[in-house]
Design a protein around this nucleic acid. Structure first.
Length: 490
RNA sequence: GGUCGGUUGACCGAGUGGCUAGGUAGCGGUCUGCAAAACCGUGUACGGCGGUUCGACUCCGCCACCGACCUCCA
C-alpha cells in the first residue's frame, strides 16, 4: 500500500504530507482533560478525532506512541495566576481531598472514553507525577535566560524570548498587540510584562497541592506539564501534537515557547487542532454552563435531550463532520446519525448473507481506493462515510438481487467494511441484550416457527397478533425473503 | 478593537472553476396478504452586491450576519 497521508498542520495553516521523523515510529501527544468535573460532549471531539488518527496511523503500519495527559494539578482558576487551582477549588466545595476529586472525575472520564470505544493511549501521564521533570524544565529555561524568579515564583520572559524566536506564530498573535490588549489584572506586579506566564507559583499557606522546589513551596504553571511530559516520553522533537482549537492560545503558544526556550529548537513537527461543538450556535463549554455531559447523553437525562443516545451514535455523529469544522448539537442531527449508523451496521450484517455469483457488477477495489483517499486527505471521515454508504447501497442491492458479487468480492467487502468501520472509524455494534442472549435466540426461533405455521394457514390475524405483541415487548419482526428476522428495538 | 474561521437544499454535513457528495426527513414507485426493511425515481442548495472567466457555489473585492480566540476552556 502506497499512501500519501496529508494532514493539516495548524502551524503553517495548510495540508502537508505527513512524514514521521523516525519511521515507522510516530510520536503523538494530545492534551487531555483537566479532571475536575464530568466529561461533556465537547470532550468527545478531540478524544475521537485523535483516536481516529491513532487508529489510522496504526492501520497504515506505523508504530505509534500515543501520549495523552491528565491534568490533575496546577490549572489556575480565573486569571491571575493568583487564585486557587481548579482542582483545589472543587475540592473545597465538595469537602474532598484534591486527589479524591481527581480520582472521581478521572474514573468517569475513562469510563466515558471506553463507552465511546476510544483506544487507551500508550501512556497517560499525570501532571502531579511529573513535578520533578517540570522543575528540571524550569531550571533549563532559567539557564537559557528566559525565566526569572520573583518572590518564589518563576515567570517566562516573553519579551526576551520574542527577540530571538517568534512568540505568537501558532495563533497568529503579534506581541505588541498582546501587550497593549492585555487586561490590567490584579497581582500582576511580579511580572516584568503582562504577557509573561507562570512557570512556577509560590503557594499560599492554605494551598493544599504544593511541592518543594528551589524557588518555593508551590506548584507548576499549567502550560509546563505538556512540554515536560511530551519531551520525556516522545523526545525533544516529536511528530504530532493535538488538541482543541481553543487551546492554541495561550496554552500551545506557551508550550512552544517553553520547549523552544529550553531546547533551542522546535519540539513539535505537526500541530493538529480539532474544532468545537456548539449548542445553539455557541461553543459548548463548562465555563459557559451550556454543556451536556456524556453520561447525560447516554441516559437522556437533560432538559435539552429528547431521548437517550448510544455512545456509538455520538461517535458516528462526530465522525460525520470533518474534525476541523464546527458542528452544532441538535436532537434532529443526532437522530439522523442514529439512523445512519443503524443502516451501516445492518449492511455489515447483510454481507454475511450474500450469495456469491460468477461476476461482480461493482468495482469493490475502486471503492476501497476511494476510502483510503478520503482518509489520506486529512482524515476526511464525512467523505469516507459517503463512500462507505455507496458500498452499503451495493450490498443491499446484491441482497435484493439487482446486483451481483463474486465470492472473492464478498471477502473483499467484508475486509473493507471491517477495516474501515470497526478498525479505523472505531464504530462497534451496540451490545444487544447481554443477558440470556442465547436463550432469547432459541425462544425467538420457536416463536418465529409457530408464526410460520399460522402464515401457512393464512391465519393473518394470529400472525399479526404475534408480531404486534412482540413489538409491545420491544422486539421487531421483519418478514424477508429469507424468512422472518427479528431485532430488539425499533 | 485585534487575529482567525464560517454562511450549502426541511435538518445535519462534504466538495469542486463546467461532471449525483453522503446521512436523516418528505414525496412517488417496485416488492409484500398487511407492515417494516431494501431498491428505484424525485427536490429552482450553495448569505448579498460587484468583478475575473467561454463558464463560479467554487477565484478576487466590498457588504451583511454568525462564531472562535485574545481570561480557564476539548
Amino acid at each position: 500500500m502506497d499512501h500519501n497521508l496529508q494532514i493539516f498542520n495548524s502551524l503553517v495553516r495548510e495540508k502537508v504530507p505527513f512524514e514521521p521523523l523516525h519511521p515507522p515510529f510516530v510520536g503523538l501527544y494530545v492534551c487531555g482533560p483537566t479532571v475536575y468535573s464530568d466529561a461533556h460532549l465537547g470532550h468527545a471531539r478531540p478524544a475521537i478525532t485523535f483516536d481516529l488518527l491513532f487508529r489510522y496511523l496504526t492501520h497504515l503500519g506505523y508504530k505509534v506512541r500515543y501520549v495523552r495527559n491528565i491534568t490533575d494539578v496546577g490549572h489556575l482558576e480565573n486569571d491571575a495566576d493568583e487564585g486557587d487551582d481548579k482542582i483545589q477549588k472543587k475540592a473545597k466545595l465538595e469537602n474532598l481531598e484534591p486527589m479524591e476529586v481527581v480520582q472521581k472525575y478521572m474514573d468517569t472520564f475513562h469510563r466515558n472514553m471506553d463507552q465511546l470505544n476510544t483506544l487507551h493511549p500508550s501512556i497517560e501521564p499525570r501532571a502531579s507525577g511529573h513535578i520533578i521533570e517540570q522543575q528540571e524544565l524550569i531550571k533549563e529555561i532559567i539557564d537559557q535566560g528566559y525565566g526569572y524568579e520573583v518572590n518564589g515564583s518563576v515567570y517566562f520572559d516573553v519579551e526576551k524570548y520574542s527577540k530571538r524566536y517568534d512568540y505568537g506564530k501558532l495563533s497568529g498573535r503579534v506581541l505588541e498587540e498582546l501587550i497593549s490588549c492585555s487586561r490590567t489584572l490584579e497581582g500582576q506586579d511580579e511580572k516584568r510584562n503582562p504577557c509573561d506566564f507562570a512557570l512556577w507559583k509560590k503557594a499560599s499557606p492554605e494551598h493544599l497541592m504544593k511541592w518543594p522546589s528551589p524557588w518555593s513551596e508551590g506548584f507548576p504553571g499549567w502550560h509546563l506539564e505538556c512540554s515536560a511530559m511530551s519531551i520525556k516520553y516522545l523526545g525533544e522533537v516529536f511528530d504530532i501534537h493535538g488538541g482543541g482549537m481553543d487551546l492554541k492560545f495561550p496554552h500551545h503558544e506557551c508550550e512552544i515557547a517553553q520547549s523552544t526556550a529550553a531546547l533551542g529548537k522546535e519540539s513539535v513537527r505537526y500541530w493538529m487542532h480539532n474544532n468545537m461543538i456548539s449548542i445553539n450556535g455557541q461553543k459548548m463549554a463548562r465555563s459557559l454552563g451550556n454543556f451536556i455531559t456524556l453520561d447525560q447523553l447516554f441516559s437522556g437525562d437533560h432538559k435539552l435531550l429528547e431521548q437517550a443516545y448510544n455512545p456509538m451514535t455520538i461517535r458516528f455523529f462526530i465522525l460525520q463532520a470533518h474534525y476541523r469544522s464546527t458542528m452544532d448539537f441538535s436532537n434532529e442531527a443526532l437522530r439522523a446519525a442514529e439512523k445512519g449508523l443503524q443502516k451501516l451496521m445492518k449492511a455489515m450484517e447483510t454481507i454475511e448473507r450474500l450469495k456469491p455469483a460468477k461476476e461482480s457488477s461493482f468495482d469493490i477495489e475502486k471503492l476501497s481506493d476511494k476510502c483510503y483517499e478520503a482518509m489520506d486527505d486529512d482524515l476526511n471521515t464525512p467523505v469516507l462515510l459517503s463512500h462507505l454508504f455507496e458500498g452499503v447501497r451495493f450490498i443491499n442491492s446484491v441482497a435484493d438481487g439487482s446486483e451481483t458479487v463474486t465470492a472473492t468480492g464478498i471477502e473483499t467487502l467484508k475486509k473493507l467494511f471491517t477495516g474501515f468501520v470497526f478498525d479505523i472509524l472505531g464504530l462497534q455494534k451496540e451490545l444487544a441484550v447481554n443477558t440470556g442472549e442465547e436463550l432469547t435466540g432459541k425462544l425467538m426461533k420457536i416463536i418465529i416457527d409457530l408464526r410460520q405455521d399460522t402464515k401457512e394457514r393464512k391465519d393473518w390475524a394470529m400472525s399479526d397478533k404475534i408480531r404486534d405483541n412482540l413489538k409491545e415487548a420491544g422486539v421487531t419482526l421483519k418478514d424477508t425473503k429469507e424468512g422472518a428476522m427479528w431485532e430488539v428495538g425499533e
